[in-house]
Each structure stands twice: as structure tokens, then as C-alpha cells.
Amino acid sequence: MAGTDTMDTMLDILLVWLLVGAAMATVMTPRILWSVIGLAVTSAVLTILMFRFDSPLAAVFELSVCAGLIPAIFISTISLTQRLSPEGMAERRREKWRRFGLLPVLVILVGVALMQVHIPLDFVAPPAAKETDVRNVLWHVRHIDLVGQIAILLGGAWGVVVLLKERKRAA
């Protein structure tokens, strides 16, 4: 049993490293397409972690939205754009390197620093109200959040209209 536990922990830690690595790659790569793929990979790893932490529903949502829908929208938008010229690409590479070159080092340092912080986990967590039915949770327990969700969607829609729609030129 102890071996399995250690194995589990090691796997989790590996997955977290992968997560962070994918996130860094997303930020540091000069090509947008690879950024989007990096985003998808990050979400996929997160999905696996969520499965492992016993939250299948959250994992499914994460996978479908963040690793599926959003990269799909991004890629279709990118397909409408023009490729960058070689000079432009070199320029962007230099830019990225300049801005994020030290990022891995920083991440490692922060990780090491945080490891020194000792957080005592000795407390008794009260039993969380377990509700297995998603529909119940969404509709009855948290319906106020639904209203908020609707509002955000509407707000998002107006955002698109305001920010991206072509304005009528003054005659």
C-alpha cells in the first residue's frame, strides 16, 4: 500500500511538472499555433489531474471546453491569418527569448522557495455536503450563480459587438 501511495504521489508530481512545462511552452513559443496546442496540452494534463483527484465531472468540462472548444476556435481564427515573414519570426523569437528567457529559472526558484514553506495540514475538515447530482447542484443549490453566468454570457456577447464589430463610418 505504501508503495502505491508513493507511486501515486510521484505520478501526481510528474503531472504537475508537465502542466507547468506545457504552460511555459505556451508562453515562450514564438509560433501562435504552438501556443494554442500548448494551451490544449495544459488543459489535457489538468484533466488527467482532475480525474486523479476524483472529480470526473470537472474533468469532463475542462476537457471539452478548454482542451477542445477553445483551441478549436483559436485554430480556426489563426487559419484566417497570414503567416509571419522569416524576419518577423526571427524578431518575435528574439522578443520572446528576451521576455521569457528566464521564466524556467524563475519557476524553479519559486518552486524551491515554496517548498520551504511548511503548511500544517493537521485539521479536521468538516464533512462537505456531498451532492452527487450535478443538475441539483447547478439548478437548486447554486442558482444565483447561474444568473451570474447568464449575465456574463450576455456581457461577453456585448463585448464582441462593441469591440469587434465594424463601426459605421460617419458619412
Binding site: 456574463i152 456581457g155 463585448g159
Partner: peptide
């Protein structure tokens, strides 16, 4: 819920 509505406010503010 507080967080959610804070986000609503912020989204409208961004735009």
C-alpha cells in the same frame, strides 16, 4: 457567488 458577480462587474468594466 460573490466571486461570480465580481467577474460579471469586471467583464462589463473591461468592455
Amino acid at each position: 457567488s460573490l466571486y461570480v458577480f465580481l467577474e460579471v462587474t469586471s467583464v462589463s468594466s473591461f468592455i
